[in-house]
Amino acid sequence: MSRSATERWRLLLGRYADKQMGNCLGPEDQRRDAALDYLYSREYGRRGIQTGPRGAGLDPTRMKALDWLGEAQNLFPDPVFERLKADALDRYQMTDLLKDPKVWENLEASPATLRTLLSFQDRADPAMQAELRRIAQQVIDEILQKLRSQVMRSLTGRRNRHQRSPMKSANNFDARATIRANLGNWDTERQRIVADRLRFMARQKRHLDWTIILCVDQSGSMTESLIFAALMASVLAGLPGVRVKMVLFDTSVVDVTDQLDDPLALLLSVQLGGGTDIGKAMTYCEGLVEQPSRTVIALISDFMEGAGPRRLLATVARLHEARVKMLGIAALDNSGRADFDRDMATKLAGLGMACAALTPSAFADWLAEVLN
Results as ranks from 00 to 15, higher is better:
Val244His: 06
Ala56Cys: 03
Glu71Gly: 02
Ser301Ala: 08
Leu66Trp: 13
Met282Pro: 13
Ser110Pro: 11
Asn185Gly: 06
Val253Asp: 07
Gln20Glu: 05
Ser252Asn: 13
Leu267Asp: 04
Pro27Ala: 15
Ser41Gln: 03
Ile213Arg: 06
Gly274Lys: 04
Leu260Glu: 05
Asp333Glu: 04
Arg203Met: 03
Asp100Lys: 09
Thr211Tyr: 02
Glu7Ala: 13
Leu236Met: 08
Gly70Arg: 12
Leu198His: 13
Ala72Asn: 13
Lys205Arg: 15
Thr295Ser: 12
Leu272Val: 01
Lys280Ile: 00
Asp59Gln: 11
Asp255Thr: 01
Leu69Met: 14
Ala357Val: 00
Gly336Val: 00
Gln150Asp: 14
Gln137Cys: 12
Lys85Pro: 09
Gly241Ala: 07
Lys168Glu: 15
Ser154Glu: 12
Leu348Met: 04
Asp29Val: 00
Arg153His: 12
Ala56Phe: 12
Gly352Gln: 02
Asp255Ser: 11
Phe249Gly: 07
Thr346Gly: 13
Gly220Ile: 00
Lys205Leu: 02
Ala127Met: 11
His162Lys: 13
Thr295His: 05
Gln145Tyr: 11
Glu321Leu: 08
Ala233Asn: 03
Val80Glu: 14
Leu89Cys: 08
Gly287Trp: 04
Leu313Thr: 09
Ile49Val: 10
Arg91Tyr: 08
Arg311Lys: 07
Ile300Thr: 01
Met222Phe: 02
Cys24Lys: 10
Arg294Leu: 01
Phe81Tyr: 10
Met94Leu: 14
Glu305Phe: 04
Met344Tyr: 08
Gly45Pro: 01
Gln93Gly: 06
Leu327Cys: 04
Arg337Tyr: 13
Met1Leu: 11
Asp96Ile: 00
Gly275Ser: 11
Asp187Trp: 07
Gly273His: 07
Arg62Met: 10
Glu286Cys: 05
Arg46Asn: 13
Thr346Met: 09
Ala170Tyr: 12
Leu312Val: 00
Pro309Val: 00
Gly14Trp: 02
Val370Tyr: 05
Arg159Asn: 07
Leu264Ala: 11
Leu13Glu: 13
Glu305His: 09
Met222Trp: 01
Pro77Asp: 15
Ala72Cys: 11
Ser169Gly: 07
Met152Lys: 09
Asp365Ser: 14
Lys19Thr: 14
Ala237Trp: 02
Leu12His: 12
Leu312Ala: 14
Leu118Asn: 10
Arg47Ser: 11
Lys205His: 15
Leu75Gln: 09
Ala356Tyr: 13
Ala229Gly: 11
Glu108Trp: 08
Val80Arg: 14
Val247Lys: 05
Gly287Met: 02
Arg3Asn: 02
Leu11Gln: 10
Lys168Cys: 10
Leu66Pro: 04
Arg192Cys: 14
Asp217Ser: 04
Asp87Val: 00
Arg311Leu: 05
Gln218Gly: 03
Ala307His: 02
Leu268Glu: 15
Lys347Ile: 01
Ser169Cys: 02
Asp90Ile: 01
Asp277His: 09
Tyr16Arg: 15
Pro53Asp: 01
Gly241Phe: 05
